[in-house]
Amino acid sequence: MHKLRTERRWIVAAAALAALAVGAKGADADEPGPGGARPMVPKNGAEVYEVYCQVCHMAGGKGAAGAARFPALAANARLGTAAYAIYMVDNGKAGMPGFKEALTPAQVAEVVAYLRTHFGNAYAEPVTASDVQAMRGQ
């Protein structure tokens, strides 16, 4: 999880998106522009959670409700199936964006392992980067 590498991933991802923009994406969305290209780079599962997940799933994985819900990840039996959690983090669904472009396989494995062993979840079986790579077909 080298800093420059992750930063480059974002720059490359942004450039790729911009390249796709012709026709497919439509007009350029209202965005801050080129700022923010050097975000904090999380070093472990707890930090990945804090940087990328906490905004929706809340501190402690409590979840939240508004016009609809962010599911709680605390005491969530579905985390027992690591493949399901990996799939959700990589691909997202509906109100949850996918993080395949943003996170390395190691980062995904770390955050999933973190969730499985915190917030009232106790699934000790390890989750590895190669599990994530396998699901990504790499």
Binding site: W10, A14, E31, P32, G35, G36, P39, M40, E50, V51, Y52, C53, Q54, V55, A59, A102
Partner: peptide
């Protein structure tokens, strides 16, 4: 701030 991408997630959390 007008944060987006990773910065948007991080500050939002």
């Amino acid at each position: 701030a007008f944060a987006n991408g990773p910065g948007g997630y991080h500050l939002g959390g």
